[in-house]
Structure formats: C-alpha cells, structure tokens
Design a binder for these strands. Structure first.
Lengths: 194, 194
DNA sequence: TGACTGACAGATATTGACATCTGTCAGTTG
DNA sequence: CAACTGACAGATGTCAATATCTGTCAGTCA
C-alpha cells in the first residue's frame, strides 16, 4: 500500500461522509468505502462508531473554540470583549446550524447522550468566559461579582443558553431573536458591571 | 340520560386518562370509555385529539400561573418578589416534572409542536414578570432598565430558561442545579438593580 | 511483524402485513 | 331536535420477518 492510514485521514473522511449522508444514515462501512479500506481497518483506529462520531464532532467544535480564543486573548476592555465573545459564539453556532446541518444534527444528538466531547466543549467555553470575567475584575469594570469568575462564567453561559444551546437552534432564524439576544446580553452585562 | 356531558367533565377525565396511560398510549376511545360515552361524543366537544390534549395542558399550566399570581399581587419590595417568583416557578416546574410525569410529557411534546396553549403560558408568565419589574421601577429599586418592562421581562424569562423550560427537566435533579439557579438569579437581579 | 481483510455473530434497522386509532356523518334515541 | 351512537375510510401504530450494520478475530499479505 502507499501510506499507512492515519486517524486524521479517517476523521476527515468521516466528516465528509456524515455531511453527505447525515448521522442517521452514515455507516462505518460507508466511511471505509470512501477511504478504500475494509471497515475492520477503521475499527483498528476507533473502538466504536460512537467514538468516531465523537472525535469528528470534537474537532468540529474545537474550530469554534479556537476562533473565539482570539477574543479572549485580545487586549482591551473586558466589557467589550465579553460582548464580542457572546456575539461570536451565537454567530458561530447559527452558522454551524445553517451551513452544516448534518454535522449540527450529529452534535445535537451527542448532547442528548451526555458525550465527553460536548462536556469538554462546555468546559472550554466556560473557561474562556472565566478568563474574560477575571480580566474585567482585574480592570475594575466587573464590580458586581459576588462569587468567583468560574461561578460567574457558568451563570453567564447558562443565562445565554438560548443563544448557543443546539436544542434552541430552530428558533435562531426567528425575526425577534436578535432583539432577544441584545436584551439578555445587556441584562447580564449590567449584572457584571453593577 | 342523567346529565349532559360538559367540557369540564371531559377535561377532568382526559387528565386522569393521560395520567394513567401517558400521552403516547392514551386514546380518545379510552377517554370516551372512562366517561361512559362513545368517542363520537367527545368529538362533538373537541374538534381533534390535539385540541383536547391542549385544553387539558392549558388547565394544568394555568394552575401554576394562578399560584404565582399571589407573589405578583402581593405588597412588598419588587426585588424580593422577583426572587420568590423565579424560585416559585422553578419549584413548581420541578414538582410538575417529578409528581406528574405523564402530564409533564404531554406538556413537553406540546412545546415541540408550537402549541397555542404553551405560547399563552409563556405570555402569561412574561406578563407577571413585567408587572413585578414595573413595580420595581416605580419603587426606584430597578434602576438598571434600559428598555421597557416587557423587554426586560422577556430577557429575565429567557435568561432563566434552564430552570423552567421542560427540555432541561432531566437536569433538574442534578446536585449542582440549585447553586446554578442561585448564580443566574443573582446575576439577573444585579442586572436589574445596577 | 504489524497493517489490513473479510467472514461471522449478535445487535439494530427496515419493511410490509395487520391492527388500532382518528375523525366524520347518517341514523337513532329520549 | 339536540345529544348521542356506531359503522366507516383513511391515517397511524404495531409486530415479526428480513436485511443491514456493528464490532470481533483468525487469517492473509507485503
């Protein structure tokens, strides 16, 4: 054979197959066929089909986290960065739902299965939020904190669930959703800066 | 016959039948049998099975709204009443989910079907919130309002979705949920009183 | 010798025949 | 004559037979 099969190749191909057939129809045999190998080979690299789906989704979610990282690492007022981060998260999720419906459906089903990858994604995002909030505390802008930045981050994340939790995706195209987002965002911001 | 069949009797019996068989198994024939009439009679009062389920759920949801009304109508600081209202809503929903799982399942499925009854329930609850918020504005406590009480009420309702939206019910027994609720509640309260 | 194959067993999904349910309405009943 | 019945058509749900898929592993190949 030309080259040994890498996990990376498998993940890339699985992502394509999921995008083409959707999570309900895509099989491990489909992935193997697209790679030109037998499905037994795929199982040498990923123990189960669930592990494969989860790894693909993890990669896909990590792309969003990486994108938001620039807002976290950036210099500037925490208040402004928090708004950009929340807006960025909402925009990213909306685009994922609209542009990549099959992978979004995979992600949504993973949420219902308490997947490790989704838990990690939430932890990553809450961690980013905590860093911005901690910066705001250091800058003297976020004076309303009655608890640590981790708790505050969790509260902010949960209060904005409607704008990033995939179970609300069907409502993200509703006309009033942008006004709703602005209202919740402002309420939370005032809560932090009070 | 003894008495003419009233919509009230049908609703009461349907509620019992739903509670006994669950929304998936309960049929209109079951309801008719429990009433001692033919199912055609039930259809004389409710155009469809969906309308019947919706009417039962409306009654069931209205009981919560009525209970919360006492907090809204009560004299006292709006800040305190808002906390009691939010706590009361969370407590009520949790009890409905735990004590009345079949009717809660009926309610949950209605949410996914964009039912009129659920829309009305949300409107009622947001209306109650708006009244408390308006009181707080009049009392001079809620000084952080950048918009009208209706918009603020909607924002508060959406920010606390995790603690009343039935799609989150499976997480309401998680140990950390009370701490999470307290954190979100405090964040929002500071946002209003800032 | 280690990456890969492909036949296999058990699990899961699909299909289609059958049963039940929903909603209607002409006819019955008090 | 207004409330109700029950037979009916079409829609929906159930179930068992069948097909496909997942995950394993002894064996092949370079």
């Amino acid at each position: 054979m030309a080259e040994a099969l890498t996990p990376e190749q498998i993940l890339r191909t699985t992502e394509e197959v999921l995008r083409r057939y959707g999570p309900a129809k895509a099989t491990v045999v489909d992935v193997a066929r697209a790679l030109g190998v037998s499905h037994g080979t795929v199982y040498r690299h990923f123990r189960t089909k669930a592990a494969l789906r989860e790894a693909v989704t993890k990669r896909w979610l990590d792309r969003t986290t990486e994108q938001l990282e620039s807002v976290v690492a950036r210099q500037g007022p925490a208040e402004e960065r928090l708004v950009d981060w929340l807006t960025g998260l909402f925009t990213a999720k909306r685009h994922k739902a609209g542009d990549d419906p099959e992978l979004f459906a995979t992600y949504t089903s993973l949420v219902g299965e308490h997947s490790e990858a989704v838990d990690q994604h939430v932890t990553d995002l809450e961690g980013q939020l905590a860093r911005i909030i901690e910066d705001g505390r250091a800058q003297g802008t976020f004076t309303g904190l009655t608890s640590g930045p981790d708790t505050a981050a969790r509260a902010v994340f949960q209060a904005t669930a409607r704008f990033h939790d995939p179970s609300y995706a069907p409502q993200w195209s509703h006309p009033s959703v942008d006004a709703d987002f602005a209202a919740v965002r402002d309420l939370i911001l005032r809560g932090l800066t009070s």
